Computed example of a mutant assay.
Amino acid sequence: MRSARLARLLAPMAMVLPLFAGSPTAVADEKAAEHAVIAHRGSSGVAPENTAAAVRTAIAQRADFVEIDVQRTKDGKLVNFHDCTMERTTDVEEKFPGRPSYRISDFTWQELRTLDAGSWFHPDYAGEPIMSVREVIKLVDRRAGLLAEISPCDHYRGLPADLAAEFTSVPGYLDRALASEELAVQSFEVDDARAFNERLSEVPIGVLDAERPSDAELVELSSWADQVNPQWTVTDQGLVDRIQELGMTANVWTVNEPGSMRELLELGVDGIITDFPQSLTQR
């Protein structure tokens, strides 16, 4: 039997139909209503990842959850950003030429707010700023669930504790999100996932895995984790069944191709993490 504190990433999902030509689509299935649609870095297939535009679009598309990436600035602000350095998705090299490092942790929040995190994706998004985690929470609160990934960038220490403190510092948010099963945390680093779980055990915690976990690893994780979230390419019926048999849920990542979405739905996964949530919600 599943743990009583297990808040599964489940929400009703619309029948799956094409949204527009050229976008990934999936085929409707009776199991679809049992699966969560999780917008990877927001609706990052149609808006610049991890920006307010991507988060708002995911909400408008009725994604059940918005997935974000948590890092920390030089002055201690938690921000939503994926890469360990900022060159790929911002104009940091133009704004701050010659800096020895372009890691989030080497910049203050005030410096980061001057960066353009949208133009790389499309000129229509010029000027989109980097978001703080607090800003993400305000956007999704009462509108969508939040799946927060603790950054695996190896220069950080103490991120799990900082994220736990951030959730508890927003008046009323943690209670609301837990009551509606709209909050979970995940990490590739087992130690970070466990450290967060020790701080806020009531928040569902997941472990990401790019490789197929062994049965021994799954059994050990089942003693404290709520989710095992594997890369979709290593996921098969046996893995999904075993994760669920051990009382955990499986949210697969990052699935953008319609045939793959169909196959994973048929396996009975608990959630699909995708750059194109509209393909699964019809919005």
Rank of each mutant, 00 (worst) to 15 (best):
H155S: 15
I137C: 01
D236F: 06
T57Y: 14
G268V: 02
V185D: 00
L19A: 14
T281F: 00
I38A: 03
A210L: 11
A60F: 11
Q61I: 12
E135P: 00
V207Q: 11
A54K: 07
L115C: 07
A4G: 12
T235V: 10
A193E: 01
G206W: 05
G76I: 04
P213A: 10
H82Y: 05
G172D: 06
H40W: 03
S23H: 10
A36T: 02
D141I: 14
L6G: 03
G127C: 05
L163E: 09
L200W: 06
Y125T: 05
A54P: 10
N50Y: 04
P160A: 03
N251Y: 08
E166C: 10
G259A: 15
R283P: 04
F65L: 07
S223P: 01
V207P: 10
I38F: 02
P100D: 09
R242T: 12
T114P: 08
L147A: 08
S279I: 04
D141A: 15
S105R: 14
A11R: 15
T235W: 06
D209T: 15
A7M: 13
N251D: 15
S105V: 15
V70I: 10
M13Q: 14
Y125Q: 05
T73K: 04
L265M: 13
F96H: 01
D191Y: 05
P277M: 01
T114F: 09
V55Y: 09
E34N: 13
W109H: 14
S180H: 12
L265H: 08
V46R: 11
L115I: 07
V234F: 10
L239K: 02
K74N: 09
S23F: 12
I68Y: 03
F96S: 00
E49A: 06
K74Q: 06
M1C: 11
D75R: 01
C153W: 06
V240N: 02
L221C: 08
V140N: 10
E67M: 07
L78D: 05
F276A: 03
K138R: 12
L139I: 12
S44T: 08
S105N: 11
N229A: 07
D75C: 02
R99C: 07
T114C: 11
A250K: 03
G158P: 01
A126L: 14
A47I: 05
E30H: 12
G247N: 03
N197G: 11
S279K: 01
N50K: 05
S279R: 08
N251W: 09
V37R: 04
V240T: 02
Q231G: 12
